[in-house]
Design a protein around this nucleic acid. Structure first.
Lengths: 182, 182
DNA sequence: TGGGCCATCTTGTCAATGACAAGTTAGAGT
DNA sequence: ACTCTAACTTGTCATTGACAAGATGGCCCA
């Protein structure tokens, strides 16, 4: 994270990331345009390139930030396995743009050091959380836990779930996860 | 599905869909370009527009086809709940391009009649399959089942799963689903 | 204090793309 | 044979991502 106490703008890098989140939150990642972000930030159309190189660079930064936010959310959930699962879903809903980029490696450079580090950190939290709870070898349990929360979050975000699931994703997630870890 | 015993080309509509699947299978949906598809099919750059209107139209057709293929795969899996889950994952892996479009409604017109019909058909199969197996109210069980297979498939496709899961997605999926329905 | 340095941002440009408009071709039906 | 129309082409425009080259302004150090 270059500390950018920017000159002309203020903090263009952050402003661009925020604008990207805003756009993607309402129109999805496909609607993202560097020139549009520049317009929103009030800078020239080539300004984003200086901070991120290209579009993939911006999304790489977003993905890294996303994995950091996810790790933070999981850490805050503490030892409670169900709570961690709910936190995973809560993160996906609250940081929809980040989440949607994170698991679309064709959009960014997944081998970027910052991304790899943050992802490993989040993955570690996920795995140890499950291992602490269940006696068994963590392999199947943690894979099942990750799958069920990730699947629920993805389905929720895609709007594929029927209305009867209700309006509160975290409440619904809690009952689903409880089905796996009664 | 307009039956297109096409004139000049042979069956351009199908050729374009196949080319789209091929491109997306290796480079993801973001790499899709109508002009590239036209080039691959050996037609002019505006030919695709005649069959699909615009890019979203082509992806709408792909999504509808995907839901039909999914319904077919679930039907073939029969009454076996675990088998149906494995079939869901198998479909996602084997028809990666279709699957990736289907659950990205910002890319196509999700309210298209053909899409809605096919999706409802697949959804019905999913729900009744679970209800047949478990005594309980199908709500939580079917949501949990759908979440776990969808999550596993998504994670597998995104390459997020660690190598120790092994090379066979369907085998790994089977053990994960068995964890939910022992 | 003032002069250079360099990150930051701008202007200009090019090829590629999606979308649209208008024209052309060729098979089908009569 | 004639027409009709689906299937495709040619041409064009605004938008976009990427790159090159230049301008600007704060900061460091003599």
């Amino acid at each position: 994270m270059t500390q950018s106490r920017a000159y002309h703008h203020g903090d263009l890098r952050r402003a661009l990331l925020d604008a990207a989140v805003e756009v993607m939150a309402e129109s999805g990642p496909a609607a993202l345009s560097l020139r549009d972000l520049a317009r929103r930030a009030g800078v020239s159309h080539a300004a984003p390139a200086h901070h991120f190189g290209d579009k993939a660079g911006l999304l790489t930064a977003l993905a890294a930030e996303g994995f950091e936010l996810l790790a933070e959310a999981l850490r805050d959930a503490g030892d409670d396995l169900i709570g961690a699962g709910v936190a995973y879903v809560g993160f996906a809903v609250r940081h929809r743009a980040h989440f949607e980029v994170m698991f679309r490696p064709d959009l960014y450079r997944a081998d970027d050091p910052a991304v790899v580090a943050a992802r490993d950190r989040a993955g570690e939290l996920l795995r140890t959380g499950v291992a602490r709870r269940t006696g068994r070898g963590p392999d199947v349990d943690s894979l099942a836990a990750w799958s069920i929360v990730h699947g629920f979050a993805t389905l929720w975000l895609s709007g594929a779930l029927p209305p009867r699931v209700g309006p509160d994703p975290e409440a619904a997630a809690r009952s689903v996860i409880s089905r796996l870890f009664p």
